Amino acid sequence: MANVLLIEDDGETAEEIALELERFGHAVITVDSGRNGLEAARQDFDVLIVDRLLPGLEGLDVIKTIRREGIRTPAIVISALGRLDDRVRGLRAGGDDYLPKPFALIELVARMEAVLRRPAETRETRLRLGPLEIDLLSRRASRSGRLLDLNGRELDLLEYFLRRPGDIVTRSMLLQDVWGYRFEPRSNVVDVHMSKLRRKVDLPDETPLFRNVRGQGYRLDQPR
């Protein structure tokens, strides 16, 4: 059984979703505005289902805010806005899935259960690997006390690697999990951003921590 927070301002839609989730044994709390949803999302839930067009505060802003606060509760965005760029925007905001309306309730249940099966990431507010450290609340990163001048995308990339020390990370993984793409664009966007990140993390007089794995992707090495 999962504890579900449903943020949906349409009463009829909220009731239908809640009844379907409860039929599968899940417990559901429903709120009907963005601001109330933001307050509730700071509590302990297993998954969030967030309508995008909410009164007071848009659903994507709710997700962006809790992500900045270091809250990693899985979130599924539901919305009548279903174009490709709308879905990409929802995923980039921090959503784990995006389901355009109208949808079959059984599909929402299946998507929610799939999200819950994904390996849970640590909810620590600081990630460390040797000399590297990132504070997820302040969105600041440093190496051996040296503050790294990283933009938002570079911080997201560094966090992604810090959660997977020593693992080979492919370009496809980065495109899907950091950029939110469900397709591979014909561009070198990953390589460009990784090149900038590596120059900032690994200065010429420092031991390189990032490695280029030929034909596969990148790896953040465990310091020896």
Results as ranks from 00 to 15, higher is better:
1 M>P: 14
158 L>E: 02
174 L>S: 09
191 D>K: 08
31 V>T: 15
139 R>C: 04
103 F>V: 11
127 L>A: 03
93 A>V: 07
27 A>Y: 06
26 H>F: 15
27 A>F: 12
197 L>I: 06
190 V>W: 03
116 L>Y: 12
80 A>R: 14
47 V>E: 13
173 M>P: 00
114 A>Y: 11
102 P>K: 02
69 E>R: 09
151 N>G: 15
47 V>N: 14
133 E>W: 00
33 S>I: 12
100 P>Y: 02
92 R>C: 09
17 I>F: 06
78 I>V: 15
161 F>M: 03
128 R>L: 08
125 T>E: 10
19 L>I: 13
143 R>Q: 10
13 T>P: 04
139 R>F: 01
219 R>K: 11
115 V>I: 13
14 A>N: 11
204 P>N: 02
107 E>C: 00
145 G>N: 03
98 Y>A: 02
75 A>C: 07
184 E>A: 01
28 V>E: 09
51 D>Q: 14
127 L>M: 04
134 I>P: 01
135 D>K: 11
212 N>T: 03
49 I>H: 15
224 R>H: 11
76 I>F: 06
25 G>S: 13
162 L>C: 06
29 I>G: 00
168 I>F: 10
155 L>A: 08
89 R>V: 02
45 F>E: 14
183 F>G: 06
202 D>H: 11
38 L>C: 12
204 P>G: 04
138 S>M: 10
76 I>Y: 04
63 I>G: 06
206 E>Q: 13
39 E>W: 02
163 R>T: 03
189 V>A: 05
105 L>N: 00
196 K>P: 00
156 D>N: 04
88 V>R: 12
117 R>D: 11
208 P>G: 10
36 N>Y: 01
40 A>N: 08
